[in-house]
């Protein structure tokens, strides 16, 4: 019996471990036993699919999707664009990409955020889109501000946009954060530094992309997202369990 190819095993060396004491909240929220390694079954290789009926076309335009008519949010107007790829460098098409972020002053529109920077009445702070057949996606938004958070007394998050991606199988599910090149807070952020691999941090740092700017309108940053790849060759299966 042939099975669809499995996803490559997750290379844990590029990811944070569960327990990262400098990010204090992880201490009580990190499992301590080893995970059980599980080869893929149908439950892992499948995952939810989304279509254009699920979302609206303006959902990826954060300059507009919460703004009053003829108004727009305060801040540096940016385009965040890139491709969703897999480890085989193949595009991941038609996959849901969702983002959320603070406004230009570093304040989130969330009932639990009490930072003194003001809410922007024209900025919601979330967007979503489907990658196209080439894996390409884009958002328009404002560049988020840095903000302080309670960890050590004086920790500041670098400017960042949270990014959630699906892929085609539930084991590709990923939430990460996009940073911006040149930000001096990146190397001193305890959350960024949970990542043990310097190249992996660079891979989360969006680069200024002048070719994609809209002159006299918006500056652009390029942010590619890589999800786990999948075997394309048939292989002999070994009996699982028992």
């Amino acid at each position: 019996m042939t099975q669809p190819g499995e996803f490559y095993q997750r290379k844990r060396t590029v990811h944070p471990t569960a327990l990262t004491p400098d990010y204090k909240t992880s201490v009580a929220r990190s499992p301590r036993y080893s995970m059980i390694s599980l080869q893929n079954s149908v439950s892992e290789i499948t995952g939810p699919r989304f279509g254009h009926n699920d979302i609206d076309t303006d959902d990826n335009d954060l300059l507009k999707n919460y703004a009053k008519a003829d108004e727009s949010p305060i801040g540096e107007r940016i385009i965040l664009h890139g491709r969703v790829l897999d480890e085989n460098a193949r595009p991941v098409p038609n996959t849901l990409v969702e983002i959320w972020q603070a406004n230009a002053g570093g304040r989130y529109r969330h009932k639990k955020d009490t930072y003194l920077a003001p809410i922007d009445p024209n900025f919601g702070g979330c967007g979503r889109t489907l990658s196209d057949e080439n894996g390409y996606f884009y958002f328009r938004t404002v560049k988020p501000g840095a903000y302080p958070w309670r960890n050590m007394v004086n920790n500041w998050r670098p400017a960042h946009i949270h990014v959630s991606v699906f892929g085609s199988g539930f084991v590709q599910r990923l939430i990460t954060q996009c940073y911006f090149e040149g930000d001096p807070l990146i190397p001193i952020c305890p959350i960024v530094q949970t990542i043990p691999d310097a190249d992996a941090i660079d891979q989360l740092t969006a680069k200024l992309d002048l070719n994609a700017t809209i002159p006299l309108d918006s500056i652009a940053y390029k942010f590619d997202i890589v999800l786990r790849g999948r075997r394309s060759t048939l292989f002999e299966n070994r009996l699982e369990g028992n």
Binding site: R10, K11, V14, H15, P16, Y23, S26, I55, D56, D59, N65, Y66, L85, D86, E87, N88, A89, E98, I99, W100, Y108, R109, H110, K111, K112, D113, G124, G125, C126, R128, H162, S164, L174, I175, T176, Q177, I191, V192, T194, I195, D197, D199, A200, I201, Q203, L204, I225, V226, L227, R228, G229
Partner: peptide, 29 residues
């Protein structure tokens, strides 16, 4: 020439804004 999977980062305390904005306290979608 394989690419490396993008590293995970915590969803943070405000994950609701992106994935469940109603719970964050606003209606957008």
């Amino acid at each position: 020439a394989y690419l490396k999977e993008s590293a995970s980062q915590t969803a943070g305390p405000y994950v609701h804004i992106g994935l469940a904005p109603g719970a964050a306290g606003f209606d957008i979608y």
